[in-house]
Amino acid sequence: MYQQPNKQTVFRHLGLIDYQEAWDYQTNLFQQTVQQKLQNRKNGEAGLPFTPTQNYLLFCEHPHVYTLGKSGKEDNLLLNEEGLHAKHVQFYKINRGGDITYHGPGQIVGYPILDLDNFFTDIHKYLRLMEEAVILTLKQYGIEAGRIEGLTGVWLDYEKQQNPRKICALGVKASRWVTMHGFALNVNVDLSYFNNIVPCGISDKSVTSMARELGTEVAIEEVQEILKGHLVELFDMELVQESQV
């Protein structure tokens, strides 16, 4: 039996949420989706009907935290335990791809938990569409951004690369075509926290934010709405619910 794609996507804004709490939250949704896919396979073998898998798009902000991906080097964290405590920053080793990054207030963190069987089974395309949503969002604010070959994320001065700087980081995990983790767009974030790490393991390029580039703080709620709209359009999602959690 063939599973009909379900592009319905539940949007939830989790607000300012502890990193571990958000990680547990998205992990639960991720595992539920994977288990449903396994059950659907059994149902198919038994000639029973499928239950469509659900997709989720989560937005949030985190208190100050550094996260290190599976392929990252702990040496890229430039603070010891005492330094972390002094700056009130948490540190987690997590199960996404990529190296070390920072999350904090003033940043839009997006966690799509999507069953890519409902959209397309191509991780490269998945990453590029997330980047494209950010690029289109920044364009509406007069910020020209793009990609640098061989590097994930969204960059400024991406062509001449005289002063290339990252404005959005990406790092994902996928299993059975179900995704988790996602992206972090620097809007009004305190960039000084990036000085305590080698962001994404890249030592010869800097980090920036919308506020730094525009010379003023930006209404983050407005950016969220624009970014969400581009994600919905690019992925051809059917947004079925919006709720504060």
Rank of each mutant, 00 (worst) to 15 (best):
N76H: 15
M210P: 11
I94D: 15
V134P: 10
G69W: 12
R96G: 13
L136I: 03
A22L: 13
P49M: 07
F235L: 02
N186H: 10
S71R: 01
Q32D: 14
I113K: 01
P52H: 11
T101V: 08
Q90A: 15
R147F: 00
G182L: 12
A86C: 09
H64T: 00
D122C: 02
G229Q: 11
D190G: 05
H230R: 09
L170W: 03
M180C: 06
N163E: 14
F91S: 12
G47I: 05
K166W: 08
T53L: 08
T179H: 04
I197K: 10
Q162M: 06
L191R: 07
S243R: 02
L138G: 08
Q26F: 06
V34Q: 08
L116V: 12
G171C: 12
S209K: 03
N118F: 13
T216L: 02
V172R: 13
E132T: 03
Q140H: 14
G229I: 04
P49V: 10
L116A: 02
A174E: 02
K70L: 14
E149D: 15
Y25I: 13
Q162I: 05
W23P: 06
Q8A: 15
G98N: 00
S209M: 14
L38R: 09
R41E: 14
G15Q: 03
P5R: 07
H62A: 03
Y158N: 12
L79Q: 12
T179E: 02
L191K: 05
R12W: 06
I167R: 03
I148V: 15
L84H: 08
Y158K: 09
I202Q: 05
N6E: 10
H103V: 00
N186K: 14
S206T: 06
S209P: 14
L185Y: 09
D99L: 10
D99T: 10
I167V: 15
E222N: 11
F183A: 02
A174T: 12
I113D: 00
F119D: 13
V218D: 00
Y66W: 07
G69K: 11
F183K: 03
